[in-house]
Each structure stands twice: as C-alpha cells, then as structure tokens.
Design a protein around this nucleic acid. Structure first.
Ligand SMILES: [Mn+2]
Ligand SMILES: [Mn+2]
Ligand SMILES: [Zn+2]
Ligand SMILES: [Zn+2]
Lengths: 138, 138
DNA sequence: CTTCTGATTAGAACAATTATAATACTATTT
DNA sequence: AAATAGTATTATAATTGTTCTAATCAGAAG
C-alpha cells in the first residue's frame, strides 16, 4: 500500500508532475484498470473515495498527464476521449457487441508512412479497429 | 451539370439510397471537396443554395450514407466526426499547424492484426497520424 | 503572519449530437 | 382529382462531453 504509493509518486515525479493526492489516485486508477476509460468512468470510480473530487480536476489532470507524456488520448470513440496509460506502440480494437476496447499488437507500422515518401513530422499515430472481438466472435 | 447530376443519382441508387435533392447536394459536396469535412462545414456550405436545409438532415443523411457504405466516418478529431467519401483503404494525417486532414497511403496493414493471431472479425480500420504536414514542415 | 504560486473546485457556458414530434413531400390507389 | 400511406425534412428540445471562469484552498517562501 505505502510501497505502491511510493511507486506512484516516483512515477509522477519522473514525468515532472507534482504528486497531489488527486493525481496519485487518478494515476493509480489508470494503472490498475487497463480498460481505456473515459473521464466519466474515472470520475465515478474515484468520487466515492474522494467525495469533493470535481470532474474539472479529472480533465485538468488528464490534460496534464497527456502533455507530460505520461498517458495517451485515444479518439477511437466518437464524441468522447479515452485515456491509456500504456505508452508503447500498439493498436486498439473496439468491439461493437460488448463495447470493450482492447489492445492489439501491431508491427511494421511506423515505417510505412515514411516508406511511402511522406515527409511530414509524425508526433503520434493511432490504429483503431472496429468489429466483433475474439470473445464475442465464438 | 445535368450529366453530373445523373452520375450522383445513379451513385445513390447504386447504394440503395433514394435520391432526394438534399442527398444529391450533400453527395456532390463530398465528391467535390475532399477535405474530410464535419457536419458544420457541410451544412454552412450548402445552406446558401438550399436555405431551408436543416442540420438534422445533414446528420440524417450522413448516418444513412455511412450505414449504406457510401461514406466513412473518421474519428481523428476529438469531439467531432469527419466524413470521407473515399472508400479504399488509406490513412489520415492531421496537421497540428494548418489543421488540415490529408490522405496518406498505407500498405501491409490489413494483414498485421490477423498475422499476430487476432481472431476477431474486423469491420473497419482507421489509421491516424498527427504532426506537422509536409507543406508546413519545410 | 502575510504573500505568492499553483492546484482544486463548482458551476456556468459551449458545442456536437441525438431524440421527438410536427410538417412536407412523393408515389400509389381509389 | 382526392385520399392514403410511407418517407424525408424540419424545428426544437434535450442530452452529453468538454472547456471556461472565477473563487477557494494548500503549501512554500519571505
Ligand atoms: Mn491500449
Ligand atoms: Mn481520406
Ligand atoms: Zn466483444
Ligand atoms: Zn500543415
């Protein structure tokens, strides 16, 4: 518990983020729940533990995390942003049946666009699939 | 003009869409303006020509086009849907400077996810890049 | 203790989308 | 031509995710 907290705090410090209690809790939620949650989900899961938590703080915190490079934003859903603590290159699969968003492994992507002679500067890439997931398919 | 209209009408019929004047105009706009427009852009460009056009009709029409497979929705932007008449597999690059969304060519993607042993059923894929486009980069 | 800075907050404001119900149009039947 | 049925369009209200603003709070520095 305390040990875990130390890890969270040092993670935040590693990304030059001042470890307020709200930031620690939001980070912990993201680490423990790899479901690419939206703001609403994060907020409603934390508000019981921190009754005065405000949605604005969740937005502010996730904006900060993204700016500092601690998390990624996913635009796989129309009209809502999802957040992902996993930072290495990977894709996402949104199941149209069970609605879950799961990670999928991708290779040989990074090179493709430049291989085709595109000379822009890439800051981020996102690869999203939609369909029926493995669990729902069988 | 009339000839062009015939093409638009037959395109709609080809996708089992009743060719109302609003649908014809929206399709024409998408064909002539390959800029991945949002609803607002489409609406404001057509409302002068059709003063009684309603935004609800634009939404309805684009929903129908997507359902029938005539267009794709792009979720490259947070909090707004973009529409694309180009239907063959390709990716998109959103420039953070000039804000344009341009097409980029992609190869060897389709196979990757199944190559990795993923057994879900893929209905759609979307590959989005963000950064500085070629024009803005130099 | 006072001041300063940054973090958090509540609530208002905003913008994209969806839902609902009324109206208009089109084609068909009488 | 008139009535009908079915679809398309419309205005409006409602909903939802996000952003803005200004007030408050907490901790560090002087
Ligand atoms: Mn992920
Ligand atoms: Mn395109
Ligand atoms: Zn599923
Ligand atoms: Zn640019």
């Amino acid at each position: 518990m305390i040990d875990n907290n130390v890890n969270l705090v040092s993670k935040l410090k590693e990304f030059s983020i001042k470890p307020s209690i709200q930031r620690i809790e939001i980070l912990e939620y993201l680490m423990d729940n790899r479901i690419h949650p939206n703001v609403e989900t994060i907020y409603s899961n934390l508000v019981d533990k921190m009754p005065t938590l405000s949605k604005a703080t969740v937005y502010n915190t996730l904006d900060l995390f993204a700016k500092k490079g601690l998390t990624n934003r996913l635009y796989i859903e129309p009209n809502e942003v999802r957040y992902d603590i996993r930072k290495d290159a990977h894709g996402h699969f949104k199941c149209e049946k069970c609605k879950k968003i799961e990670d999928v492994e991708i290779y040989n992507i990074e090179t493709d666009i430049s291989k085709n002679g595109y000379n822009g500067i890439i800051h981020a890439e996102e690869i999203n699939y939609r369909g029926i997931c493995e669990a729902c398919a069988k």
